[in-house]
Amino acid sequence: MLAFFLVLICAFLYPGTIDKTKAILSGRKGPKIYQFIFDAWRLLKKGSVYSNSSSFVFQISASVNFACVLTAFLLIPFAGEPSFFSFDGDFVFMLYLLGLGRFILVVAALDVSSGFEGMGANREVLYNALLEPAFFLLMGTLCIFTGHTNFHDIFLSIYENEHIASVIVVITISILILFMFLLIENSRIPTDDPNTHLELTMVHEVMVLDHSGFDLGLIKLTSAFKFAVFGSLICNLVIPGHLALYYKIPLFMVFQFMLAISIGVFESFKPRNKMARNPQYIISISAIAAVLYIVIIIIKSNVV
């Protein structure tokens, strides 16, 4: 319950914080942190222009995508506080919810019969097909490390391991993997750049060129929410579940804020990949996760 609202608050502040950080680092003043809320509200009130070639799929696409991410919120725990729904394998459900949103957005991009959007669409599905194993490998590692198979129990018991060194290793590398995962899942640098001006080099952003008004507002909200979803997972890893609530809430907000700033810093200093290098880059995340998995499994099962 608490988790849902905390994540929601963070979600609205994510895009503003990232933009502000990037602006300050490039010597500009930048908009206010909560500017995003006004932008989204303005879009939600606006009228829409639809492509002549679009059909009903295009009309429902943004709403489905939004509903999926909002439902995914219900699965996110908050540092030991239970989420609305917690069951074994809830992370599988979460990832497939995001998959549903992506599916519908991709077919909507094909609906407007534009060459640009088709290009974005096939890149998006390919990148995510390559990306998904990384998340499951990471969750597999956490499962084997803690002996539990749902978000809530994993995050609650991750600090209860007697090898404090292995806890530190697992958490550090998990954060690294989740951070890289978050950037790709949210179509940020280094695989994609939402601020680029050339449609040919965009991936996710080119898919939503024809959405306008209410739908575009929902899409902006969705991408902010996705940040919050994965940001919360990272924060859950960092904050031990047995702390008192009046420590956890400020800690959670501070970590989310720091994460947003670090995304901004990362984006300011890192150039984007060459398009052809992207698949390799994405597979490398799975490779890191696989190495972590094998190390943990060897430690856990005492084979050596």
Binding site: Y96, A109, A129, E132
Partner: peptide
């Protein structure tokens, strides 16, 4: 890993089948 990759590529195949034949 096999199921995750195949799930992703299945989306690839089916967005192609549905998106290109019914839409646009």
């Amino acid at each position: 890993i096999v199921m995750a990759i195949s799930g992703g590529i299945c989306v690839y195949a089916l967005t192609k089948a549905f998106g290109l034949s019914f839409l646009g």
